[in-house]
Design a protein around this nucleic acid. Structure first.
Length: 279
DNA sequence: GGAGTTGTTGTACC
DNA sequence: GGGTACAACAACTC
């Protein structure tokens, strides 16, 4: 379940491997991955002859910049890219293969088949779903405290739900939201508008610092995540609450609790993250 | 075979 | 019409 730090790591390792490669052909084993254009044969024809010029990221999306198009890819829970020689045996969970003129292949692998690909003309990627309504991610200049503070103050939703809302801040998922709230000492069921300025600042800084620290460690490896070179991230050693249910809190020793918030598994230290009576 | 897993989209509602 | 809640959905593992 890659979130921003894992997607950033994948993008960076993949960039070295695919840049300047020209797509000779595209083989699609599971057409449902391709959301735009509707016609997968058109998808294939558009990509033939295009060269990878650059890679980018917005929130949890990877952007492959080609000559005339941008391929927008979301890995959802288990999507992976690998670059292989063509004689490598094709795994049954490989769904899209970009065969390049130098003989190597960029393969998209996804056990769950939940991932998506959208192909746009260059320059049009941000005016259509899925990128059109995304908020800033924590690394962008316009993710300012002032912006964040106003967004938090104008909604009564649970703070955890707000942090998961990609229109407010993009790139955060279940793991990092739980960690950010723990570090800020804020209970996930707090109403966003009721938070103090100090708490909002603490969460804001946590978004930037936690994500930055996770990127520096190559992301978090739980279950199956590895980068495009098959390496695991190391941030899982820095998790305080996610996946720590029934373990003692590293700050106070109380047992970490697992609960549901908005249907999502949520990890909380009942002592460090007090829920107040007026929340 | 039912529950658990997750992020996004569509829809109904106020 | 904006904000919100929630169901639906994708498909696989245990």
């Amino acid at each position: 379940m890659p979130e921003l730090p894992e997607v950033e790591t994948i993008k960076n390792t993949l960039k070295e491997l695919v840049i300047d490669k020209e797509i000779q052909d595209v083989t699609i084993h599971w057409p449902n991955i391709i959301k735009k254009p509707d016609d997968t044969e058109l998808f294939r024809m558009m990509l033939k002859g295009q060269t990878f010029r650059d890679l980018g990221r917005k929130g949890k999306f990877i952007l492959f910049y080609l000559d005339d198009y941008v391929l927008v890819s979301h890995l959802r829970m288990e999507g992976k890219y690998q670059v292989t020689p063509p004689d490598d045996p094709v795994d049954k969970h490989t769904h899209v293969i970009f065969s390049c003129t130098d003989g190597e292949e960029l393969r998209y692998h996804d056990v769950r088949k939940f991932g998506t690909m959208h192909l746009f003309l260059k320059g049009e990627e941000f005016i259509h779903p899925p990128l059109n309504k995304l908020g800033p991610d924590p690394f962008e200049n316009h993710f300012t405290f002032d912006y964040f503070y106003k967004k938090m103050k104008k909604t009564d939703r649970f703070v955890k739900i707000v942090l998961l809302d990609q229109a407010i801040v993009s790139g955060l998922g279940n793991i990092y939201v739980d960690e950010i709230l723990f570090k800020a000492g804020v209970h996930p069921l707090s109403r966003a508008s009721k938070l103090t300025k100090k708490e909002i600042r603490s969460i804001y800084e946590g978004c930037i610092e936690t994500i930055d620290a996770a990127v520096k460690l190559g992301g978090t490896t739980i279950r199956s995540y590895v980068n495009s070179q098959g390496e695991m991230g190391m941030f899982q050693q820095n998790l305080f609450v996610y996946g720590q249910e029934d373990e003692p809190c590293q700050h106070c020793g109380q047992l970490i609790l697992k609960m549901k918030v908005g249907g999502r598994g949520t990890h909380v230290c009942p002592a460090c993250q007090k829920k107040r009576w007026y929340d």
